[in-house]
Each structure stands twice: as C-alpha cells, then as structure tokens.
Design a protein around this nucleic acid. Structure first.
Length: 435
RNA sequence: GCGAUUGUGGCGAAGUGGUUAACGCACCGGGUUGUGGUCUCGGCAUUCGUGGGUUCGAUUCCCAUCAGUCGCCCCA
C-alpha cells in the first residue's frame, strides 16, 4: 500500500458514519429547541486570531497549533477550537448590530486540528459541537447553556453524568486572586513540580489543576478563588447556583477547576462522566463565560458564554454504554436480475421505483437468484422485484414481500402508468401473511 | 516533545532461522439448471507494514522508518 492517512486522522466508514449522523441529527434537534442557529466558519484563520483568542501561554498556541505559511506568505493556522473563529465572524459581520435579536445564540459542528500525539479519544483532526451566546450577562444565560449541555448528553441516555462548576471571577477578582495564589505558592517553590514552577508566573491558576501528587497536596490548602470574588462576581455566581437549584440540576463546585484557554471569566463548567470504563472522572464537555474576548478581537464590549464537546469522545462513551443506534439506512426493494438480457429492463425498473420514492438497490454482478435473495434478506428489504427472461417476454415483473413470503406477478405497463394505485394494491395483497 | 507496546489475507487470529504460512468470520462458486434458513464441497496471502542489514537461507534476528494502541505533557 502506497498511501496511508496522516497520523492522527481517521477515515469514517459507512458503518461508523451512520453513528455520526445519529449524534449530529439529535444534537441539531435539541439545539433547535433551544433556539440556537448554526454558523459555519472557515477551517483556517490567521494564526494571530487563535494566538490572541486562546491565550499566548496556553499549550495550544505554544506547541499544538497546526500552522503554516501560505503562498502569499500569510501565517495561517487550522482552527484548534471553535470559539475564536465564531467570535471573529460575529465581529466582522457586525452581528452585534441593533437589528439582531439579543442574545445571539449560535452553534457549530465541525473539525478542529491540534498537532499532538494521538491516543484514545484524541486525534489531530477531531470534531466538536460548540455553542456561543453573545450579548447577555444574565446568569440565566449561563444556566440555560449548561442545561442545554446536560440535555444533550441526557438525550442519549447517559446517566453517569456530573455537572461541575466554578467561578473564576471577573478580571479584577482574578487579578487579586492571582497575587494571593502566587504569594501562597512562592514559599513552596522548590516543592513544586517542574511544570508547575514554570506555570507559577505565566499562569498560576493552572497550578491548581496539576496532576502531580505533591502539587495536589500543596494546592489543597491554597486560597480559593471563590473567596476572592468581588461583589458583582459573587452575586453572579450565587444567581447561577440558585437557578440551577430551581431547575433541579445537581452540580458540584470544584474550586480548583480552571481552564486551559485563557479567555474565561466568572462561571466555568465541565460535564463529566463517571462511567467506569472512561476513567475516574472524564470531562466530556467544557465551557464557560468569556466577557472580554469579543472586545479583544476588535468588537464592542460583549459578554459571552459557550461550551464545546468532542464528538469522538461522545461516540466512545456511547460505545461503552452499548448505545443502541437507530438504523439509518434501510432498503425498500431489491431488484433481482436473471440473465444478461434483462439488464436494460432492470435498469428502467430500478430507476422508476426510486423516482417513486422507494429506496432501491439492484443486482449488478449477475449472481444466481438464490444469492441475490440472500442479499435482499440480509439487508432486510421489504420487497424483491424479480426481472427474468420469462418476465421480460411477457412484460411483467414478479414481486415478493420477504416478510410474508407472498409473491405475485404484475403487468409492467400497469405499474408504469399508475404506480401509486398499482403498488398500493400489491402491498395490501402481499403483506397478509400466509393467505 | 518523552516513554511503553504492537504491525501476518477484507476482518479476527495462530505460527516458525529452512522445501506447500494453521484456523475462524466475511466474500465468491458448486451441490439445489430462477427464490431467502441450515447443511455440505471448493476457491480466496508467490507473501508476513516499508526500507536496509546479518545469514547459504529471514515473515521469524538486528537497525532505521512509517503507522496503530496505551501512558506522560496537555486537553475535547
């Protein structure tokens, strides 16, 4: 074999893509109930947009961006996440203009790219569903959007779900907290892991979710963000919690939860699954509020809230659960051909049936009738239309309903002149079992 | 970027420094000269990811490379 797919990419073959269709279709239905509308933005953007949006210190920018120079010497990157592009489109197309309803609720479904080592549920090209809500600081937006995320996952019957929330506070609160955290950690500098030593000044909050055991011990006694929230942020967080309670959506507060991306403030959340095969606590969805990003990208001051989740991870989880996917592809009829001479007549018949809204496959390989029936049976076809040389001579076709085993001949002229009535008659006569 | 592990037909999977590379599934053909299940018989890898090397001889040993899987980092 000469060519193979690039590392970290996958071919999604028909058996698998049917699962994707189910997931996407269901997600679209729920998003539509929540009055979100789809936005499609380019797969690549100016490198700087992501560098700015995602945060210069994040690993995504420093080592995971799929970037390149195009022939015009432009520095381009494949999108590593969805939000930056949507924000750019929001600003560039002036979706904040007065004629648009506020808040503007958008969703996207599509591929993202990160240059990293592939492993379970992680690829270089992966797919995300994400939503963004622009223009409202109302905590009800936070709550509605988190409720949406929970509804999406619940709709697949996922029960091992946990909503975990935290507040990072606004920039003022965050700044104060940052100082306090550094003050607390500095005396322990030598005890910190190497990664955390580096993080301490670049992005001290990230020390909080270090996986290192010693770090974890230190962090356990660190001051909490929640104690540093100013009045506004505190009220916002309280309101969010109350509304979640009102909706009977249970949640946990994890004061050490932070974000890999720099643009978040106030409410952040993760949806985790506690499914045993998925590891102790696996995040399947993450999001939060980002009130300064729109401005950062050049738009007017616009509060925003959003989340994203990876479709691959969701599919893995559904597989673990042995999720029963509804069948996407079905077949109404199989056209059996007997002999070379019927090729033309079979072509005509097959096309005619399809044009009358039946899903039809025909035999192309000239196998023996027995084999053809076997295929029709395996595919669960409702009817088999048999076109043989006998039928051809008499301008008729033989129709068999596989479930009842009943079979009858029908005149082709009749079928071709009045499909509906003829076929209805055939259906009613053949569907009865063992007459 | 680092570490571990794997790579044999369409798929799953055995195997060995030496003349013909098990088996199962799927598929194709026959038994059943035009009708679904079962059964039965037969077919299906000049080749063991790729490229080198060692050897009289390599799918088997060595090196490199590509890819998969898992873990670290990070994250969806």
């Amino acid at each position: 074999m000469n060519y193979q797919k690039l590392k970290g990419t996958v071919d999604i073959l028909p058996d698998e893509s049917e699962k994707w269709q189910v997931v996407e279709q269901q997600a679209r239905a729920i998003l539509s109930n929540y009055q979100f509308r789809e936005i499609r933005t380019p797969l690549f953007e100016k490198f700087d947009l992501f560098a700015r949006g995602v945060g210069e210190t994040s690993d995504i920018v420093s080592k995971e961006m799929y970037d390149f120079k195009d022939k015009g010497d432009r520095h381009i990157a494949l999108r590593p996440e969805g939000t930056a592009g949507v924000v750019r489109a929001y600003v560039e197309n002036k979706l904040y203009a007065p004629e648009y309803h506020k808040p503007m609720k958008l969703f996207y479904i599509g591929s993202m790219f990160r240059y990293e080592r592939p492993q379970s549920g992680r690829q270089r090209q992966f797919n995300q569903v994400g939503v963004e809500v622009f223009g409202s600081k109302n905590p009800a937006v936070d709550v509605e959007t988190m409720a949406l995320a929970m509804d999406l996952f619940k709709s697949f019957g996922i029960e091992d779900l946990k909503l975990v929330i935290n507040s990072l506070g606004d920039s003022e609160s965050r700044q104060k907290y940052r100082e306090a955290l550094i003050a607390y950690l500095e005396p322990h500098f030598d005890e910190l892991s190497n990664d955390s030593k580096e993080r301490l000044y670049k992005n001290p909050l990230r020390v909080l979710d270090s996986k290192d055991k010693k770090d974890k011990v230190l962090v356990a006694d660190a001051p909490s963000v929640l104690d540093f929230l100013n009045e506004k942020s505190k009220q916002h967080f309280e309101a969010v919690k109350e509304m979640l309670d009102d909706l009977s959506i249970s949640y946990e507060i994890d004061k050490n939860m932070v974000r890999g991306l720099d643009y978040y403030n106030d409410t952040i959340f993760e949806v985790m699954t506690t499914h045993p095969k998925f590891g102790a606590n696996a995040t399947i969805c993450a999001g939060g509020r980002y009130d300064s990003l729109v401005e950062e990208v050049g738009g007017p001051e616009t509060p925003a809230f959003g989340f994203g989740f990876g479709i691959e991870r969701l599919l893995i989880l559904l597989d673990f659960m042995n999720y029963n996917y509804p069948k996407v592809s079905t077949i109404d009829a199989y056209v059996v051909t007997i002999g070379d001479k019927v090729n033309k007549a079979a072509t005509k018949l097959t096309q005619y049936l399809r044009q009358n809204n039946l899903s039809v496959e025909r035999e192309f390989m000239n196998r023996k009738p027995g084999k053809q029936f076997k295929t029709a049976d395996k595919w669960d076809a409702e009817f088999v239309f048999t076109m043989g040389e006998d039928e051809l001579k008499e301008n008729r076709v033989s129709i068999k309903a596989l479930k009842s085993g009943q079979q009858m001949d029908i005149d082709l002229g009749e079928l071709y002149s009045n499909f509906e009535a003829t076929f209805k008659e055939v259906e009613s006569r053949l569907m009865k079992k063992g007459e």
